[in-house]
Amino acid sequence: MKILTLITTPLAILAMAGCASAPYNPANNTAGRATVYEDVRSSGRVQGIGIESQDIASMTDKMMRDMLANPILAGRSPSPRIIVDSEYFRNESSSRINKNLITDRLRIDLNRAANGRMVFVGRHFSDMVAKERDLKRSGMVDGGTIRSTAAQAGGDFRLGGRIASLDALDPNSGTQSRWQQITFEMVDLELGTIVWSGIYEMKKSAQNDIIYR
């Protein structure tokens, strides 16, 4: 009997000490983490179900390759003038996004890879160009060293597209999923025909801890 008492007494005291006064620490006193570079083409430490860096990198890469393989866009002589910006690239999805992240990357990647097979019109810089042309024509500055033209460049083709999404939620499990479809279309700016189309899609799902559902 004494042995039983000897065993149970310290155990009970330990249990009481441990349970009755669980420490409450409101502050997250983690030691933190030094800055690290992460690969933009891989999933980072912080993830959601929206469009992330790896999605933009892989979608623009896919579209660029596809466009360069299209003879209407990349096999013409003289090289076609193309406008790639976010003006006609619509976001109809439930993800907030700066669309320029997609269109800027696509234009720059294309411009570097096309090597003159496509000429890109900087329509988003047209104000800047107009101001300089006015200064030149008014005689405030000289004519520069390249050439003078009657007007700024007109485009042959322009990018249009759409980001759309479909969300689904299972309230029982708290699992949320989002299917996103991003379409890219190159439009003939005289005829209105679509000379090239590309599509990129992804579906992501995640489940929150029960405490946050």
Binding site: N28, G48, I49, G50, A206, Q207, N208, D209, I211, Y212
Partner: peptide
């Protein structure tokens, strides 16, 4: 917007 799975506070 983040998902809290395997979270210490949770």
């Amino acid at each position: 917007n983040g998902f809290y799975a395997d979270d210490e506070q949770a």
